[in-house]
Design a protein around this nucleic acid. Structure first.
Lengths: 242, 242
DNA sequence: CGGCAGCCTTGATTTCGGTCAAAGCCGCCC
DNA sequence: GGGCGGCTTTGACCGAAATCAAGGCTGCCG
């Protein structure tokens, strides 16, 4: 579904001067001088689940790297119907270059730690550093690819295929190190049933019923409503509609 | 739904040396020397509706600007279910920089004229010209925005809202000069009912029924199954779910 | 002109997922 | 412990859209 590995494949994680963590993303594209400049105004911080990171209400003047946790990108219709249009995992980049008008919301789905940079600083650097813009282009192409893959799921898959696809997608993203040939895996769901429904274009009840079915069919196990174990990834994949 | 104007807002149409037409897109980002170099290997050509422009079968080694007509981007599940994940209108750019793996198909929905460049030439120039990459980034961000908007339509709108949204989207894109405050408009549908169904995640029959309803409710008129007239765009918009 | 092929529309029926309603579970705080 | 609130599950029923099945329109070609 995704080819996340490709995004930041160029180069190893870089010691970010500002948040003092080793991570990919923006920092990796900057030379030491630029990093120094950026460090003065950037900062690492952590937010609770539910915290709004980008809203149509407030203008946002910063970009961030997601260091850990999951951020959901949502859009709403005027009557309140909501759709999650993307999930950002570490080490994705969060922000809207060139102020593309889009009325998108970003909210922490889990506890999230971020490394943020002021918008002005990044935009200035983007003019100077083609490498930075190149990385952004790659991430954006990747997000576009994911969005289009998800459009197939939304438009053409049945409820049970949608839920299976969702579980696979999460399994692949939560643990980026997951061997693509792995046969089993185990992870915490970063979303509530309501979020999953908003992501899949379903209702809470339908999501719950499909999870129950996967459980009683022995495809998955769930503990505490959050922790999912998949013993046979192939079985799940067969139910995802390919 | 879209902010197409922004994409190519930087600069006026440029006389493309290769296809000898004035257009935006790639050419506008190149200096005269680069254009000259490109002209040697690029060409303008026209294809019939149904022609496959990018397929998972054959490797594609060129990029193109769409000069006129409509190109549909599709994805399919293994059992044949299909979803249209995007439409490209002039002056959109067609191609996959950096070979992002995505199993996408591109097919001419109408007669299409293109100005094509060999992949190698463009990629070489992208390394030299940050401006070119900048344009690509802008178009990609725009496509991402459109894809995410469409995800809301696919996931959360009813069949009648989907069809209304589709008509509005086409009206806004077919005639880029359409005044956003215009009250009425008229255009040819670039897609068959089957294509519209694949775009909206519906069946042919449902699309047909919804069009019939819009017609009998006096919101639209249709001649020859293709030519649509909307006398009151606001009425259509109210049915699109906003 | 006549027949055929490709689209499109319309109607009857089925079904998947939504809606409405109730109850369970679990953690939390008094 | 007990009660409360939020999230989840389950059940009964309903309805929007899919499916199945004709039939119509148009343009093309013999």
């Amino acid at each position: 579904m995704t080819v996340r590995q490709d995004v930041h494949s160029s180069g190893t994680p870089v010691l970010c001067q500002s948040c003092e963590a080793r991570h990919h993303g923006v920092c990796g594209a900057l030379d030491p001088d630029q990093l120094m400049g950026l460090a003065k105004t950037s900062s690492k911080h952590t937010v609770e689940p539910g915290a709004e990171l980008i809203g149509d209400t407030e203008a946002v003047d910063s970009y961030s790297n997601v260091l850990s946790g999951v951020v959901k990108l949502t859009k709403s219709l005027s009557d309140g119907r909501q759709q999650i249009v993307g999930l950002q995992f570490a080490p994705d980049f969060l922000g809207r270059p060139f102020k593309v008008e889009s009325a998108i919301n970003a909210e922490a789905a889990t506890a999230v730690s971020l490394c943020s940079f002021p918008k002005a600083a990044i935009e200035r650097m983007m003019k100077e550093s083609p490498e930075l813009e190149h990385r952004l282009l790659k991430q954006t192409l990747n997000e576009l690819d994911e969005a289009r893959n998800w459009m197939v799921t939304l438009g053409r898959k049945s409820a049970s295929e949608k839920v299976a696809s969702f579980l696979l997608m999460i399994a692949r993203n939560i643990d980026p190190a997951l061997d693509p040939s792995a046969q089993s895996t185990s992870f915490d769901l970063p979303l509530t049933r309501a979020d999953i429904a908003d992501f899949l274009g379903l209702t809470i009840e339908t999501v719950s019923r499909q999870l129950t079915r996967l459980r009683s069919d022995g495809v998955i196990r769930i503990e505490n409503n959050r922790h999912v174990t998949v013993d046979n990834l192939n079985r799940l994949q067969r139910r995802s509609g390919a």
